[in-house]
Design a protein around this nucleic acid. Sequence first.
RNA 1: GCGGAUGUGGCGGAAUGGCAGACGCAGCAGACUCAAAAUCUGCCGGGGGCGACUUCGUGCGGGUUCAAGUCCCGCCAUCCGCACCA
Length: 803
Amino acid sequence: MANYNPKEIEKKWQDIWDEEKAFETSTDYSKPKYYALVEFPYPSGQGLHVGHPRPYTALDIVARKRRMQGYNVLYPMGWDAFGLPTENYAIKNHIHPKEVTKNNVARFKQQLKSLGYSFTWSREVNTTDPNYYKWTQWIFLKLFKAGLAYKTEMPINWCTSCKVGLANEEVVNGVCERCGSEVVRKVKSQWMLKITEYAQKLIDDLDTVDYIEKVKVSQKNWIGRSQGAEVDFSLAGLDEKLTVYTTRPDTLFGATYMVISPEHPLIEKYKDRLNNYDAIIEYREMAAKKSDFERTELAKDKTGVLLDGINAINPVNGKEIPIWISDYVLMTYGTGAIMAVPAHDERDWDFAKKFGLPMIEVVAGGNIEEAAFTDVATGKLVNSGFLNGLEVADAKKAIIKYLEENGLGHSKVNYKLRDWVFSRQRYWGEPIPIVKCPCCGYVPVPEEELPLMLPEVESYMPTDNGESPLAAMRDWVETTCPKCGGPAERETDTMPQWAGSSWYFLRYIDPDNSEAFASKEALDYWMPVDWYNGGMEHTTLHLLYSRFWHKFLYDQGYVNTPEPYMKRTSHGMILGENGEKMSKSRGNVVNPDDIVNEFGADTLRTYEMFIGAFDLAASWSTEGVKGCRRFLDRVWKLQDMLTDEEGYSKELEVKMHQTIKKVSNDYETLKFNTAIAALMSLVNEFYRAGKVTKGEYRTVILLLNPVAPHMTEELWSIYGDGRRAYQNEWPEYDEAKTVENTVEIAVQINGKVKAQLAVGLDEDNDSVKSKVFSLETVKSLTDGKTVVKEIYVKGRIYNIVVK
RNA sequence: GCGGAUGUGGCGGAAUGGCAGACGCAGCAGACUCAAAAUCUGCCGGGGGCGACUUCGUGCGGGUUCAAGUCCCGCCAUCCGCACCA
């Protein structure tokens, strides 16, 4: 027996798999299909991180097992290659981003290959390939034509360092998610996508898919549906209404003042009537200067200015109430105006306390002198005319009915979700295929002219005036209008990185198609994705965006399923040996290449699956890696103990069937750590017995194959059936043989274990009872006492309660 | 503040309400060796006892149950999201 030498074996089998096209999909559409998907990586300059193999190995195990179960499996891989780090590297080193991408992709691919994944490499995609982004642009045009892409002047989150507009989702704690620099507000004309149009569907259809619960919860929270009402307040002495949104219309009698956002149009419209216009403008400018971060930081300390000169009238009681402006009211949510009910809203309470504004208690049950009373479950309405005595829920219904009957308002649903800022003032992204014509407005580039290629530029540097580097390319920018033929200009913004990843799973299905992003036939067969695993950090960005695009394509009739992914799971992070996030500055980074070199890819794969619960963070341990290598060595050395018996030995038959069952189930439920533990335990049994039958060895090899494919393929070539391991059927177990017919049960007195007893699994209760009571220990402990109760749990425990 | 998770030996972690600590790491002892490494075998939660044993033990405090890491009530700590969304 040769020594286990992963270096030799692994390369050998990777080449054979390539040669044999082992993991190619079949074009036989009568076979059952399985589409397993992992998030495609951004090919960064650092190369693969040890975090990457965790999800890749997990679904590789599922994919390999499915093939052995007879499925036609698609497990593709590609590159999400547009984006800032590449562009920044290109700027710094004066290399074209295309070149940078090419090099990074080559390195990533080589690293992934060295890990022996069964990816369907013939379907590799790259978002920066014009044949790919042609279809990204095509989908954008469909969105534009459907009225879901529009351009608007709006304040955007501007990263002062990247010099680029960011989506709300990319601003973390008031700083840029990527570079950590300050983010300020800047008004710019931006392309937007109306994801809000799909808010309700994105919530409702979560009920139709199998996502882990925390993903569903955070998507729902992110979309932030709230049910309330819009109420019109008239303005005293003016023919004007001020509409507010509230989730507590039942407290309308308690509204003692109103607050509008500093950007509310009412201010400009009636500036002549305002006695303190200057003070108001000063406040507004101050608020605009605050970054989101400061606005949040100062949340507790309310500020504001009275709108001196205009009063509103409470529609239910005709009382005249003042209007204030304050930046705690956001122009981007609801109507940008609220009715303030300080007795029953914490923010209004703070504001009223600070500025000495009156409070009226309209829901009894709290002490409004001390705090706002916001409990909606227990209170009853008071001081509220016809609502008095009602509970909150009933009062809401009653007041909405009243408002609707009197034309004063109506029920209304709002969402926290905002439209998606789709413009980036950057070079390394998909050009937005729109032409701006002085006569015709925004005109789409004709579909037959796609892809609209990213032109070669002198400099990739973004400009200080906030224009993309493309804006400097006058001969590219200046074009003719596709509609009227007159002179026009191209859009110079590019798409955000999320664009290419919003539909890539569709391109894998038919990557070389030049007529469509994928053929209908192929889509019908392969969609939806059966299992998609990815990081929790993509739950509110990529996952939501791609569901939105897919739903749009469904509504347009281009895809056949309303949801792209049937099942979504998430993996935990791999932390450094010290329990902290791996980073260069902390000096705790582990390079997967080093592990492969020293221990082999199979060891790395086994270790990452054994490291702990798949969905939780886990710390790296070099000693743990060694342990996994030791296990593979032990499997390898079983060759020395091999007998010629074909089947399972009598002593281990039950253990074999139990292990097949456990491993099969655990692979399905992402419990790889316990699956591997079960295999280790079985191997320990072989060592204890000093022998392993050929039948047993074969089963172990096949069960371990998805985790450690190279080593098991090598062993199978010696001890197998002439085929490859990957060509085999998945081992089966017999449920009846997973249980021993005699078992050791624990005998308890008052819940404490006092003795062990061997009984037949099917032995009847009387027989077990007589055996239990003939035990010396039981006799002595029950002697002179009354047996109050006896419980026998079949095959597990016999508990006697004595007094 | 809101939402989600987590809390078990020296460490990573196992446990359909039924013998807590599977499996692995580290540690200790033995075998092999001139020796070490590797490998194989055994031991390995704390206290008490020479010992068969005994007692305590799953973040903390209560409860349900013959039986609780697991279920219920009330807390604490840590991590991760979101955060003036009316």
